[in-house]
């Protein structure tokens, strides 16, 4: 009598430390639509067990500045992908309208607002860094920045920090 044996089920590998993979994302823009790509990628990388750092520089500073982080704007002016005429979108109130629309759309697909997103990223082990030159230029100090920013560092520090990392510039 023969008996067929069922093969044991495969086990997913889940290479836990992701082979030492490391990701650095540079966020250099401060409009709402340009804040999200970096944050979404950082969050995804963290969910894959990848060491992740975000370096905020120039206009990207608005993402981590207490005064502005919850109030980033989106404008359709000069953005042909919105398929809206510049002259109309440049009228008073249009930026507020476009921002409102975008926030609603993001909320509709369950993407968190920027402050909540940063909280999520740091809870997941992500590191936030502010650019020294931008801080000096805008006369901002640690007290003006989101309290989970780990430090204000120079370009040299960032180059050191990102040794061996994959870098994404947004």
């Amino acid at each position: 009598m023969t008996q067929t044996m069922t093969a044991p089920a495969p086990v997913p590998t889940f290479e836990t430390e992701s082979g030492g993979r490391k990701l650095c994302i540079i966020c250099s823009k401060g409009s709402l639509d340009m804040a999200y790509p970096g944050l979404i990628l950082a969050n995804a990388a963290l969910g894959e067990g990848i060491e992740t750092h975000i370096f905020f520089t120039f206009w990207g500073f608005d993402i981590i500045t207490k005064k502005t982080m919850a109030d980033l704007k989106f404008t359709a002016v000069g953005n042909p992908a919105t398929h809206m005429p510049n002259m109309v979108m440049g009228l008073p109130g249009m930026t507020a309208l476009a921002t409102h629309m975008m926030k609603k759309q993001m909320d509709g697909i369950d993407v968190p607002a920027v402050p909540e997103f940063l909280e999520l990223i740091t809870d997941a082990g992500g590191h936030l860094w502010a650019c020294r030159l931008s801080a000096d230029m805008m006369h901002l100090g640690a007290a003006d920045l989101y309290d989970r920013v780990e430090g204000i560092i120079s370009a040299t520090d960032f180059i050191e920090l990102s040794a061996g990392a994959q870098i994404i510039f947004v």
């Binding site: 889940f14 430390e17 969910g47 894959e48 067990g49 999520l120 997941a124």
Partner: peptide
Amino acid sequence: FPTKDLFQLFPAKPAKKMAY
């Protein structure tokens, strides 16, 4: 469930590990 806790319970890739 706090994000931090999930990363502790199911290290590195919590979403996939939990699903599995």
